[in-house]
């Protein structure tokens, strides 16, 4: 079934109201493009979110949308999939909510392989509430509630999702629109829990936090574009690569003789351990990775839920009011 929609068909009647220069504009544009390319009817697409800048996304899309509680969207999406398993369900979470009120719902959805697509929009700051640190904020970041600089250790979202059992985990950049478009396509086609971390610049409260990745020119020096079955290399003409050694990652210099060979990326490895290591690599000591860390197939939550006796629709409906121990009054 092809729907022949245009990206503009997915714009809602609402005026888009993010700050000028916000990375969310680029994400919204790529999302509309992805939706228009998907062979799924518009009424079958649902976006859920909670509270935050990124959580406004459902208001700006002309699909079904539900902006509920801070932290409640993941579990509501799970309920929605149980009520209507055929819907395509998306969730938009910022890092403040995603790793705040929604954390445990998110981790449980990973392990249960709930068939939803989570866009985890990470700008390492709480924007809507005016610039407090989140669980992804780097140490030293000046925030509204850490005027001396944040001191806490941050989480790596993709590593956490992988450890929690997500079957699809990927990372992309708001400014790398082609890559983002491809990743959204991959996520939309995944059957099961898809977690996409999108590094997004907050112009107002955490500007330039991804400066090292911002320009097209700099990216090859700092980034590995993960591709399944391909060697993990970076730098100009792929001068450097990475390999796994003694349960850690090390950098290898290529084209300098010797037998140094980079590791081959495997999205579908038996264990997610290697992917977790890749997801924690950081500049400046290591390149950072974008692309698909992991994509494996496992039975979805709604499928296993309705197996056996838990049938969603009755064939011969009967209600046994009597139970095993009823008796006539003598």
């Amino acid at each position: 079934m092809i729907t022949h929609n245009q990206p503009t068909d997915f714009a809602s009647e609402q005026e888009v109201r993010w700050c000028p220069g916000c990375g969310d504009y680029a994400i919204l544009a790529q999302l509309k493009k992805t939706l228009s390319d998907m062979p799924i009817l518009k009424e079958q697409q649902v976006f859920l979110s909670g509270i935050g800048c990124a959580s406004r996304m459902p208001n700006y899309l002309s699909t079904y949308g539900f902006r509920g509680l801070h932290g409640g969207a993941v579990s509501s999406a799970m309920g929605l999939k149980l009520a209507q398993p055929n819907l395509t369900v998306w969730i938009v979470l910022g890092d403040g909510e995603g790793f705040g009120a929604a954390t445990q719902h998110l981790l449980h959805a990973c392990r249960r392989n709930v068939d939803i697509k989570v866009l985890f929009i990470n700008n390492e700051i709480r924007g809507l509430s005016r610039g407090q640190e989140s669980a992804t904020t780097r140490p030293g970041t000046l925030t509204a509630t850490c005027p001396e600089g944040s001191t806490d250790n941050p989480w790596h979202p993709c590593a956490l999702a992988l450890a929690a059992g997500a079957t699809f985990v990927a990372r992309s950049l708001d400014v790398d629109v082609d890559h983002l478009g491809n990743i959204l396509q991959r996520a939309s086609a995944h059957k099961g829990f898809a977690f996409v971390e999108i590094l997004q610049n907050c112009k107002v409260y955490n500007d330039l936090v991804f400066d090292n990745l911002a320009t097209q020119h700099d990216r090859p020096e700092h980034l590995i574009y993960l591709e399944h079955g391909k060697p993990m290399v970076y730098g100009a003409q792929g001068r450097q690569g990475i390999k796994f050694e003694n349960a850690s990652v090390s950098i290898v210099q290529l084209n300098q003789g010797g037998d140094q060979t980079p590791a081959i990326h495997d999205e579908a490895g038996e264990s997610s351990f290697a992917a977790q290591m890749l997801a924690t690599l950081e500049n400046p000591d290591f390149p950072e990775c974008i692309g698909v860390f992991r994509a494996v197939t496992r039975i979805c939550h709604h499928e296993s839920f309705y197996q056996g006796t838990r049938t969603p629709s009755p064939e011969i409906p009967t209600l046994d009011l009597q139970g095993p121990d009823s008796f006539p009054v003598e």
């Binding site: 969207a73 579990s75 509501s76 999406a77 309920g79 929605l80 149980l82 009520a83």
Partner: peptide, 23 residues
């Protein structure tokens, strides 16, 4: 048509329920 799920906390339980109702 009747099903049951053990949620991981009460907020999740009620959120799942409202998701079902939305659906």
């Amino acid at each position: 048509g009747f099903s049951f799920i053990l949620a991981d906390d009460e907020h999740a339980a009620a959120s799942i329920a409202i998701g079902v109702s939305y659906g």
